[in-house]
Design a protein around this nucleic acid. Structure first.
Length: 434
RNA sequence: GCGACUAUUGUAUAACGGCUAUUACGCCGGUUUGUGGUACCGGAAAUCUGGGUUCGAUUCCCAGUAGUCGCCCCA
């Protein structure tokens, strides 16, 4: 056999979830689900496959995204298909499809896997899972407040100290007016430049600003972008909702940081925009945004003439997981995936009788695994202990003929004998105490 | 698409250009142990691929490949 074997590596930029990884993933999904549902959000999903037109139709400004950063292929019937790179067009399609029967406002969430074709790097892979929450319709100000409160609560439910993150907030209309006031006429590219402020050295950033506002306005504009001050909002005077959103959140006990330089990349945002960042000890944002979102108008435009507006955010599992691990926020219990009870037959002949006993205990709603390996009993016990099972039951000839088995609590070394049904209470009591 | 860096058992690592390539964890087997946790003994397991320099290359050079981290872009 000299033929070349296949590599066991996963495809570039995607992950294998071995049980230990999957346990963490499950914890993340469960926390997302629990939080969204505690706000009355309903879950939806769709296929990862979408007609390529869904993304192309969004307009020329997304050309790079569609042509270079999606997985797009032709199916056997000659149709162009794309692996969904984001959830918004899909949810817009779904809403437009049932617009007549859906009563607004709607609170919907989803945990889709999304794909983008690009070079993997820290916090960015080719496939990731994203917690997507949207409120469609409803009073604009309150919807914004509620959605940001949900974003906040998500962080809290992961056990994150509020000192460890910051919610940056801004408003697209405010940004546009601020730019106009400073003499910019190309809003779209100006927004792109502004979005990079925190990434670039000051002088380099100012150089870029010269391309979007008149040179004699650069200093003043730069100062304003750094001015996290509400008086700046008033000075722009556009009758904005931004103030009311910030104040409303404060009433709910949630502090946000007004950030004139927050822009976000996508063009479909029209109102409130926000991002959540990790902060260092001095309270300064670090790294990549963990969560981001904003308000959009007329989301269903490409499907119908009846406008539906909303506000939503997305939170990726890759960045979140990095953050949780770096901050030791993944509870130890999450990592243990072993059954509560391990039944250990002494010989292979006793495997089947052991399965029968395991089955009886399972009837009581207890998770039970049987170690059907060929190792010696000692090895099996050691293995069960290493894997974190709470109880072991050794099955030998005596147990099978008598029907009386002995269960041992590995933590306390306490033992109890009896028939399987007599022992379930003992197991349950000790499990709940944990 | 552009750039920087890295590549040694399953994982993490060590080795002035020179003995049989180190150590830990994990895995397999054994002894000890109160029905496991401890301790001890033993075993399998690696220099990415192809060239070059050299008496001799894991080590130096070149190319390829792969990965990591940036840039671009950000859903």
């Amino acid at each position: 056999m000299s033929d070349k074997k296949l590599s066991t590596d996963s495809y570039k930029g995607v992950r294998d979830f071995y049980p230990a990884d999957m346990a963490v993933q499950k914890y993340i999904f469960e926390t997302w689900t629990k939080t969204a549902e505690s706000f009355g959000f309903e879950r939806y999903d769709a296929s990862i496959l979408e007609p390529a037109d869904l993304y192309k139709a969004k307009g020329a400004e997304n050309e790079e995204l569609v042509n270079e950063q999606t997985y797009t292929f032709t199916d056997r019937g000659g149709r162009e298909v794309t692996l969904r790179p984001e959830m918004t067009p899909t949810v817009a399609r779904m809403i437009a499809g049932k617009q007549r029967e859906l009563a607004l406002p709607l609170r919907w969430y989803s945990i889709p896997n999304l794909f983008r074709y690009e070079r993997p790097q820290k916090g960015r892979l080719r496939e990731h899972w994203q917690f997507n929450c949207d409120i469609f319709g409803g009073d604009e100000i309150t919807a914004d407040i509620e959605l940001i409160a949900l974003a906040y609560q998500t962080m809290i439910n992961f056990g994150v100290n509020p000192q460890k993150f910051i919610i940056k907030i801004n408003h697209r209309t405010f940004l546009r007016e601020l730019l106009r006031k400073n003499g910019s006429n190309d809003i779209i590219s100006a927004t792109r430049v502004i979005d990079r402020m925190d990434k670039l050295p000051v002088e380099e950033f100012k150089e870029l600003l010269k391309e979007v506002v008149p040179e004699n306005n650069v200093e003043k504009f730069y100062t304003e972008l750094n001015q996290a001050d509400k008086s700046l909002i008033d000075s722009v005077d556009t009758n904005l909702s931004l103030m009311r959103v910030i104040d409303g959140l404060r009433e709910l006990g949630i502090e946000t940081a007004f950030s004139p330089s927050l822009a976000r990349g996508f063009d479909y945002y029209t109102g409130t925009i926000f991002e959540v960042f990790e902060v260092d000890q001095g309270g300064n944002p670090t790294g990549r945004a963990m969560l981001g979102g904003g308000r959009y108008d007329n989301l269903t435009m490409m499907f119908s003439n009846e406008p539906v507006s909303g506000i939503g955010f997305g939170m990726g599992d890759v960045t979140l997981r990095d953050f949780l691990e770096e901050n030791n926020l993944i509870p130890e219990r999450v990592r243990s995936t072993t059954a509560t009870v391990t039944v250990i037959p002494e010989t292979i002949e006793q495997n089947l009788p052991a399965e029968k006993i395991a089955s009886e205990i399972r009837q009581a709603g207890i998770s039970v695994a049987t170690d059907i390996g060929s190792q010696k009993t000692d090895k099996k016990k050691a293995r069960a202990s290493d894997r974190g099972t709470k109880f072991i039951i050794v099955i030998g000839e005596t147990e099978i003929t008598s029907g009386i088995i002995t269960v041992k609590n590995l933590k306390t070394s306490e033992e109890k004998s009896g028939t399987p049904s007599e022992l379930t209470d003992f197991i349950k009591q000790n499990t709940s105490v944990n």
